[in-house]
Design a protein around this nucleic acid. Structure first.
Lengths: 116, 116
DNA sequence: CTATATACATAGTGATGCTATGTATTGTGC
DNA sequence: GCACAATACATAGCATCACTATGTATATAG
């Protein structure tokens, strides 16, 4: 059994990460490293985002008006930037979820036809 | 109900297309436009590849040794280039399918937690 | 002989996940 | 107190890949 290792794992995640970020933030406002940890936990380590992936993604989502962020000072510790989803973000999440399910169904239909 | 339209549909498909191409070609060797038509049919129009998407994708898969292609002359009509999956391609398909399912499960777990 | 369909091909663009690195503050062990 | 790690956010640069647009060639229909 040859070990092959696909090169395009990163490509498989593309787009889904934005979907997961919006979905996670419907649970309440969260800050960067918290998002990384919770996504990793909830996915059994599959979505293990690096800061270089997360922060640009959050920026994009905020630029599009899907998120709002604000700095929160603390008694002790470095200030944190909290992100929360907007109404527009919720609408887009609903829409994107539909498209995502279409994609999954389509791909599963094709994978079902695989001949060994 | 505001109409929003997500921008990143193309990103959602990324990676999945390569998976679907390999999966489809386990059914036998096929040529370009045939692949486009069959994928579109099997996915209810979701995977509606343009030539500019398909041919580079096939090239990449062939460069990596997952496909082999050959020209087939015909009695009448333009010659066609047929693609078939290699043993290496089948191994990668198996591996990629596992990763793909991990991704779907992970994302679904996160989507399940969505609060309206 | 023009128009349309078939068939493959590539150049260029844009989106985005990843690696690597940077900055600043806070907390901890000695 | 001082070095070192941990926390927290940030950005530059790269590679991948789906899409648009366009091009080439052959075949078929009227």
């Amino acid at each position: 059994m040859p070990k092959v290792s696909i090169e395009w794992v990163a490509e498989l995640k593309r787009g889904s990460i934005q979907l997961c970020l919006l979905a996670l933030l419907t649970q309440g406002s969260k800050y960067g490293l918290q998002i990384i940890n919770e996504l990793s936990e909830m996915s059994g380590g599959f979505f293990d985002l690096k800061e270089g992936t997360l922060y640009p993604a959050l920026r994009r989502l905020e630029e599009r008006g899907y998120l709002k962020s604000e700095w929160v000072e603390r008694e002790s510790g470095i200030p944190r930037r909290y992100y929360r989803i907007t109404e527009k973000g919720k609408a887009v999440l609903t829409e994107a979820t539909v498209v995502w399910k279409e994609m999954v169904q389509s791909a599963e239909g094709i994978l079902r036809g695989v001949k060994k």
